[in-house]
């Protein structure tokens, strides 16, 4: 068993682009659930929409900034569309509608009617939309090694996408940090506790919930862009399981905290990689095949989520006291 290789792989997950993308998606979900109490069960839909918006407009020849704006606008419009009919109703309705809507985005994206635009189920090849992003890099091409970590400087799964991805995560954390401490964040927290009470104090609850839904969705769309930059846009890899992982990450790190989603994402991907590499190296092919090991990893995710919700609902960084007090 090559322990040093396993260790490098595992440590690489700490700052992998995927980890950053999931952290960002979980930060968006935190605005929904942690701050406002909205049950968004379709965060992957926002991500996929952002990925499509970015990739398709880049392929159409739009510059980088415009493509990012398209992704943001798509997510904002999607949030408004989902929010208008549901945010006046009880919370469960939003949950149902978002699950369905995210599936609709995926199914429409992979339908053959749109092959020209979305590439249907085979999706969009990474090389067709990565140029503008890679060209924006100030670094020379080639590969670069930092200690045991060696990646290309700009191409695909690069240092450049890591730098940008984590810078965006840091900015998002700063944004949440500012908002949680602000009177705006206080109104959201009030809504999370009891909408009617907040309404009786003269706040337009519907408008606040809409702002939260759109903001969290837009953060999700940016996460979608980062997620697809080192790979391809594949609708089937951005379905319900993705939403489920984002929820696990958020609950693991701690909802309503600033760094919970980041910590959650790191722990999630590091442990998954650890389990999978150790099992691949240590379990003989006759006992468990490689695909089975992959699936076994996901089973562990499911069990972890269950254990978390039962034994540590506030997550790693959450305030135990806040959750433990007598909620009547």
């Amino acid at each position: 068993m090559d322990w040093s290789r396993i260790l490098v792989n595992v440590a690489g997950e700490i700052f992998a682009p995927t980890t950053a993308a999931y952290a960002l998606a979980a930060i968006g979900l935190n605005v929904h659930f942690g701050l406002t109490g909205l049950l968004n069960m379709g965060q992957a839909g926002f991500m996929l929409l952002g990925a499509y918006g970015f990739a398709i407009s880049t392929i159409a020849g739009w510059p980088l900034w415009a493509a990012v704006l398209v992704a943001i606008a798509c997510a904002a419009a999607f949030g408004l569309l989902l929010g208008i009919p549901t945010l006046k109703l009880r919370g469960d309705y939003l949950a149902i509608v978002t699950i369905a809507a995210a599936e609709i985005v995926r199914l429409v994206g992979r339908s053959t009617a749109l092959t020209e635009l979305t590439g249907a189920s085979s999706g969009l090849r990474g090389n067709s939309y990565k140029d503008t992003f890679q060209d924006a890099s100030p670094f020379p091409d080639g590969t670069f090694a930092l200690g045991p970590f060696e990646y290309s400087m700009n191409a695909s799964n690069s240092w450049w996408v890591r730098i940008v991805g984590w810078a965006v995560v840091a900015l998002a954390c700063l944004l949440i940090w500012l908002l949680i401490r602000s009177p705006w964040g206080r109104v959201l927290k009030g809504i999370r506790e009891d909408e009617d009470a907040v309404r009786s104090l003269g706040k337009n609850v519907y408008s606040y919930k809409m702002q939260a839904l759109v903001l969290g969705g837009v953060i999700g769309a940016v996460a979608g862009i980062i997620y697809v930059l080192p790979r391809a846009v594949q609708p089937d890899s951005m379905g319900r399981p993705m939403t489920f992982f984002i929820w696990t990450i958020l609950l693991l790190g701690g909802a309503a905290t600033v760094f919970g989603p980041v910590l959650g994402s790191i722990i999630f991907w590091v442990s998954l990689m650890l389990i999978k590499s150790v099992m691949r190296a240590g379990v003989p092919e006759s006992v468990m095949r490689t695909e089975q090991i992959e699936q076994f990893g996901w089973i562990i995710v499911g069990v972890t989520l269950m254990l978390l919700v039962i034994f540590r609902p506030q997550g790693i960084l959450g305030d135990k006291k806040e959750l433990a007090i007598d909620v009547r």
């Binding site: 927290k189 009030g190 009891d194």
Partner: peptide, 16 residues
């Protein structure tokens, strides 16, 4: 009563 349970007393007040 609709006290906002997981907010402190002073935060409840400020919200008003």
């Amino acid at each position: 009563t609709k006290a906002l349970s997981r907010m402190t007393v002073i935060e409840n007040m400020r919200l008003g």
